[in-house]
């Protein structure tokens, strides 16, 4: 559970640091501060849905951190036999890295208002992701035919479960991606999709990092 505790320590440190900055000195019973600023409320200056994504990423990180903790604890069992990683995973990793890069270019294009760049980046990023997912399925198929069944060994079971969990998160992202792409193809202006593109980019970077951690874990153990 060390992994999880580490992750939690980081989250709690962020929460407490933020609260300290906000509130440590405030005496609400004598506070003089009138409302300041010209915004309608007291929130952060980010759009709410971006904050929502941030909170969701914390939840997803918790999910993966706990799975990795379980992985480490179960690995101590006597029956654990490490799984030979199929080469295709390297190719998949490259595809996902490219996907993330394309999303970043789409995001940059959206910020500077170039509709062509957004369109191209989104399409290429989506295709790379689909290639990644197809490659993951191929890896499953490959392992299965080589006799590394789900039930044969806990290492296999973890491999299938973790990749499935990661793949499902990507599928969820692809749903938002599809909605955004369709909107764009139907002639939406850049500023209408800009927020969605930014959200997708952050999400893809996050899932890339998760994949790199998972892949590194599978390689090292």
């Amino acid at each position: 559970m060390t992994t999880t505790l580490l992750f939690l320590a980081v989250i709690m440190a962020v929460v407490i640091w933020w609260l300290v900055r906000q509130t440590l000195n405030v005496k609400p019973w004598v506070e003089q501060r009138p409302w300041v600023g010209d915004r309608g409320g007291e929130g952060l200056s980010l759009p709410p849905v971006m904050v929502g994504l941030g909170v969701f990423l914390a939840v997803a990180t918790s999910l993966f951190a706990l799975s990795i903790s379980a992985y480490f604890m179960r690995r101590d069992g006597a029956d654990w036999r490490p799984l030979a990683q199929p080469m295709v995973l390297w190719f998949n990793t490259a595809a996902l890295v490219l996907g993330s890069v394309f999303f970043q270019t789409a995001c940059n294009a959206a910020k500077s208002g170039r509709v062509g760049g957004v369109r191209l980046g989104l399409l290429a990023g989506g295709v790379c992701t689909l290639v990644f997912l197809a490659g993951q399925l191929w890896a499953w198929q490959h392992l299965n035919t080589a006799g590394h069944f789900l039930t044969a060994n806990p290492a296999n079971a973890f491999f299938y479960m973790l990749t499935a969990l990661h793949g499902l998160h990507l599928l969820g992202g692809l749903w938002v991606w599809a909605k955004t792409t369709i909107k764009l193809q139907r002639g939406a202006a850049v500023h209408e999709v800009r927020l969605s593109v930014e959200l997708c980019t952050v999400y893809w970077h996050f899932l890339l990092v998760v994949w790199l951690v998972l892949f590194g874990l599978l390689l090292l153990t």
């Binding site: 906000q22 509130t23 405030v26 309608g40 409320g41 007291e42 929130g43 980010l46 969701f56 939840v59």
Partner: peptide, 23 residues
Amino acid sequence: TMGGLNYVVTVLQARTRGMTLMR
């Protein structure tokens, strides 16, 4: 999780003017 996202983000983002955290 869907509900929880709402509760957290609403407290963070939808406070009216003057409603600081310590109020």
